[in-house]
Amino acid sequence: MMRRHILSLAAGAALMFGLAPAAEAAWPERPVTIIVPAAAGGGTDATGRLLAKQLQDIFKQPFNVVNQGQAGGVVGHTNIATARPDGYTIGVIYPYAQYKLLGQADITRDMFQPVAQFNFDPAGFHAPANTPHKTLKEALAAIKANPSKFKIGCGGPCGGSWDIPVSGLFIDQGIDTKQITFIPSNGAAVSLQELAAGGLDFVTASAPEAKALIEAGKVHPLVVMSDDRIPAFPNIAPVKEQIGKTFEGGAWRGVAGPKGLPQDIVQSLEKALKQIYDSAEFRDAMTARGFGMRWRTSGEFTAFLKEHEEFTARIMTALNMVKK
């Protein structure tokens, strides 16, 4: 008897709360969730937390970071895309086009409402310290001459932020990429360890990820995939300096919500993010962690996602990686 009584009590309470009208006051009137499709302590998590703290200062409501790093980000991205578009669930997104191409999950730009991009890190290409190929040109020539001989670590699952842009460069240089053995791993650290242990010829990863091993004299960086030298690594020549062509690619991070996010929320979020992006606090923290800064407005970010999906599809098709 007692049990039924309690149940009806709970149901009554639920009804009461459910019926209470959610007044259309200024967003946000309660805590906002930021889904970060990565584990706590990683780079994406750090950027998410930096943003969350300052968003909280601006909007005077808690912005709570929720880490969902399982399945290499598939689950987190899916949950951002399928959240209720009420402005109380947003997320940090990063390169995702490979999920669909690998048959892991149907995630496309139509499912997101991009708000702003705030970060870009160019991919890097690294060799072991004792490599005979000291420059990008030498490495490219050697790979072109004998592509099946080389084993290249992807610095994560293949089809990710680092190997796709580098493969794009290979294809541009007329290298038969289908013959190269690309070796996947659980993250850049694993690939770099393998490189230092003498198990790989090259690894694609960002320069900050390889920094400790570069300084230890275990890894020889060949290039960063950007037009200009990056401030933290003035000694690594970018693609443009080495082969005279513009080639930019790597990891990016931006804030997005589910499709259907009301435009006024998008605008006020974008404005707040721009304010954060321009603040010295954010810039210093990003630089300290080795993250590159790049701003794209909601509109530019939307257009960029299209570019991202098309580029990834083109390269992965050329690499024969797309799941039919």
């Binding site: 302590g41 780079g43 650290a189 400790a212 230890a216 300290a288």
Partner: peptide
């Protein structure tokens, strides 16, 4: 601490914290 390569799942998180604190792992 020496190479910035995590030895287990705990240090995988700690490396992130080290970076965040400007104590970039590596021989330096």
């Amino acid at each position: 601490t020496v190479f910035g390569i995590p030895g287990d799942s705990i240090t995988a998180i700690v490396i992130g914290v080290l970076y965040m604190k400007g104590m970039n792992p590596g021989p330096t």
